[in-house]
């Protein structure tokens, strides 16, 4: 393998991994509070179509339009997460079914497709796209330059978010409270922590992150909108949270590995490797199954990280 190939794999790993980082980070926050949200795929698709619509219709300087598009995508994701939060926290329905309902509601033949149709963004070519930055003018430095110093602002933003979430979870009082809510809501409640509020806030922030992840598809990866363009990334993001044992740092590693896998076929084909394209396309899905199985046999026996109250609604004792 030559350096060129490594660089091109690393670059596309970051490009395809960034939505996974964002959506995974959001799901991680929700699950840390004890709420399992299987609606990530739907929230990402809604984020993608919303960001694309806003970026296509809003006038003004490119940067302002992109910022508005990204905020709109986050709001779209958050709004959908609110439905799930209400059903699973307040109404206490089965979180699995509610999350599936969210993905059906917003998914490939759901609201995201409908919105794309009503807004008429289907066949359009994106006007505003995130551009690669030339950080410190060093993007020409071999290997490190193209990988680390020549990404778009959104990638750097995702790194900042990862650092912030890690700090928040493990170094702040609120992070400690959040983990308490996910592990033992009853004890957290006894300590005076508002379990319901923590769960709502983190589920909604999780949705906003998923929306951001979706926005990256239409604003950076490809300047188009098609129904279901995330192709299962929302589900892989949920799986990543499990592989990462609910830790943001491991999540980033996993997301980029899967990003590399997603683009491997394309990269290898341009380098002359001949195998059916379906084989490469199915690699991320097969790897998810393999890694999930591996994670459940060895490390997870010790139940590292799994929030004990994940998926369990909390009812305060009142008699």
């Amino acid at each position: 393998m030559n350096a060129d190939l490594i660089v091109s794999i690393a670059v596309s790993a970051i490009a395809y991994g960034t939505p996974l980082v964002l959506a995974g980070l959001g799901e991680l926050l929700a699950e840390r509070s004890g709420v399992l949200n299987l609606g990530v795929e739907g929230m990402m698709l809604m984020g993608a179509v919303t960001a694309f619509f806003v970026s296509q219709t809003l006038g003004g300087p490119g940067l302002a339009v992109l910022v508005a598009a990204i905020i709109a995508a986050a709001l779209a994701g958050a709004a959908l997460a609110l439905i799930h939060a209400f059903l699973s926290i307040t109404v206490r329905v089965n979180q699995i079914v509610s999350g599936l309902a969210l993905t059906i509601f917003a998914g490939t033949i759901g609201l995201s497709s409908y919105a794309g149709q009503v807004w008429g963004v289907g066949g359009q070519h994106g006007v505003h796209q995130l551009v690669k930055l030339d950080v410190l003018g060093l993007s020409d430095v071999p290997v490190v330059g193209p990988i680390l110093l020549n990404q778009d602002a959104f990638v750097y933003f995702s790194w900042v978010l990862v650092a912030l979430v890690t700090f928040y979870l493990f170094r702040t009082r609120f992070g400690l409270y959040l983990r308490a809510v996910g592990e033992s809501p009853r004890s957290a409640d006894a300590m005076g922590i508002n379990v319901t509020r923590y769960r709502y806030v983190h589920t909604i922030i999780g949705g906003a992150f998923a929306g951001l992840g979706g926005a990256y598809f239409t604003l950076a990866i490809a300047p188009i909108w098609t129904d279901g363009l995330t192709a299962g990334d929302g589900w892989i993001a949920i799986a990543l949270v499990i592989f990462a044992f609910w830790r943001p740092d491991l999540l980033v590693v996993g997301a980029y590995l899967f990003g590399a896998l997603s683009s491997l076929g394309f990269t290898l084909q341009t380098h002359g490797v001949q195998l059916p394209s379906e084989f490469f396309s199915s690699l991320p899905y097969i790897m998810t199954v393999v890694v999930l199985a591996a994670a459940s046999t060895t490390l997870a026996r010790r139940r590292i990280g799994t929030p004990a109250a994940l998926g369990v609604p909390y009812v305060r004792e009142e008699s």
Binding site: I109, S113, Q117
Partner: peptide, 10 residues
């Protein structure tokens, strides 16, 4: 639009 089917199902 076909998207309405999923929306209504949701």
């Amino acid at each position: 639009p076909i998207g309405l089917v999923g929306t209504m199902e949701g």
